[in-house]
Simulated scan of single mutants.
Amino acid sequence: MDAVPDREGCEVVDRTGPDGAESRELNGAKRPRIVWRNVILMCLLHTGALYSLLLIPKAHLLTWIWSYICFMMTALGITAGAHRLWSHRSYKAKLPLRIFLAAANSMAFQNDIFEWSRDHRSHHKYSETDADPHNAQRGFFFSHVGWLFVHKHKDVIEKGKRLDLSDLLADPVVMFQRKYYKISVLVMCFLLPTLVPWYFWGESMWNSYFLAAILRYTVVLNLTWLVNSAAHMYGNRPYNKNINPRENRFVTFGAIGEGFHNFHHTFPFDYAASEFGLRFNTTTFFIDLMCWLGLASNRKRATPEMIMARKLRTGDGSA
């Protein structure tokens, strides 16, 4: 794991894990170099998830309820945490909520908050270019999972260093999670989901591991990836017909509110990531609930006037 200083003197760590390949590309390379470790790990993970389906009849009902709870917590660690809070700063969260979302983000095991947010800001700033980590112009497979199977394009690394990440570097929760990321992933993504069913209602360790850990993790990964792939290729564009991101109902339902993607790329600051508030948007409901409990505040919204003006100016007329 090599650490290199960025142009502003901040340390940037290039690491390659099961959810992100960050080694540098060779200048002038005609083809991206494959990260075989990631390919093998993802094949094993998805094989394990398919095997998990055979365990459904053998599992305790409470194990499935627990797996769904872990699924929701995992998803919120990405959608309400790394995405809407830390990547876009679309609302503010108090310390207890930030700690919860950081723990949930470790359960998601999709790189730490700092790396996830950095890559996502690159995705928005340089969308559908070589500096976009999962550039949809390179096809469905690449934008879905293939981008994890090859070394990052040099533009992703070079232009990513130009982003202002000072807010992330100044957040002690983000830096603490980054420092202890590996152990937090081990505990939150694998140990906790496995041990709770085994300890509290006598589920077998085998069933607990494959259902609450492996299957749950694989499902969340693919739903997250669909935002990068399907939601950039299939659907309508009522807000901006000049960009690739689309409104995709299937992704919206599966990814708990992240499929209103044409809206989100048009108004990335909006905490709801949608014009429609709570409709099919569990993440927005969660943030609203946290505000009601006094744990979140300062929700940013695009006004109805802004939305209508944008529809008339650049929309495809589908809404």
Score class of each variant (00 low, 15 high):
residue 42 M to V: 09
residue 50 L to N: 03
residue 128 E to C: 11
residue 138 R to W: 13
residue 136 A to G: 09
residue 129 T to R: 11
residue 134 H to S: 01
residue 50 L to E: 03
residue 99 I to S: 02
residue 125 K to L: 13
residue 143 S to P: 05
residue 57 P to W: 09
residue 77 G to W: 09
residue 104 A to C: 15
residue 51 Y to C: 03
residue 126 Y to C: 03
residue 104 A to Q: 11
residue 56 I to C: 07
residue 67 S to L: 03
residue 109 F to C: 04
residue 78 I to Y: 08
residue 117 S to M: 04
residue 67 S to F: 12
residue 111 N to C: 10
residue 71 F to K: 04
residue 91 Y to K: 06
residue 148 L to P: 03
residue 120 H to N: 05
residue 144 H to C: 04
residue 90 S to T: 02
residue 78 I to L: 13
residue 63 T to Q: 00
residue 95 L to Q: 09
residue 108 A to I: 02
residue 114 F to S: 00
residue 110 Q to M: 10
residue 101 L to W: 09
residue 153 H to P: 02
residue 49 A to R: 08
residue 85 L to I: 04
residue 96 P to F: 09
residue 42 M to Q: 15
residue 139 G to T: 10
residue 75 A to G: 15
residue 56 I to H: 06
residue 69 I to Q: 11
residue 93 A to I: 04
residue 101 L to G: 07
residue 68 Y to R: 07
residue 87 S to K: 00
residue 90 S to C: 04
residue 145 V to A: 12
residue 127 S to T: 15
residue 95 L to F: 14
residue 53 L to F: 14
residue 40 I to M: 12
residue 92 K to R: 11
residue 87 S to Y: 03
residue 57 P to V: 07
residue 129 T to Y: 13
residue 149 F to N: 08
residue 134 H to P: 00
residue 129 T to C: 09
residue 64 W to K: 01
residue 48 G to M: 06
residue 87 S to V: 01
residue 124 H to C: 05
residue 137 Q to Y: 10
residue 119 D to N: 10
residue 83 H to N: 04
residue 150 V to P: 05
residue 148 L to Q: 13
residue 106 S to R: 02
residue 73 M to P: 01
residue 105 N to A: 12
residue 84 R to V: 05
residue 60 H to S: 12
residue 110 Q to L: 08
residue 58 K to F: 14
residue 72 M to T: 12
residue 40 I to P: 01
residue 93 A to Y: 06
residue 52 S to I: 03
residue 114 F to V: 02
residue 123 H to N: 04
residue 141 F to W: 13
residue 72 M to R: 12
residue 94 K to W: 09
residue 150 V to E: 12
residue 111 N to Y: 00
residue 49 A to F: 04
residue 140 F to H: 02
residue 119 D to Y: 05
residue 136 A to H: 11
residue 123 H to G: 01
residue 78 I to V: 14
residue 107 M to R: 10
residue 55 L to E: 01
residue 126 Y to F: 15
residue 122 S to Y: 03
residue 136 A to V: 12
residue 127 S to A: 14
residue 107 M to S: 12
residue 117 S to F: 09
residue 137 Q to I: 07
residue 63 T to G: 06
residue 137 Q to D: 14
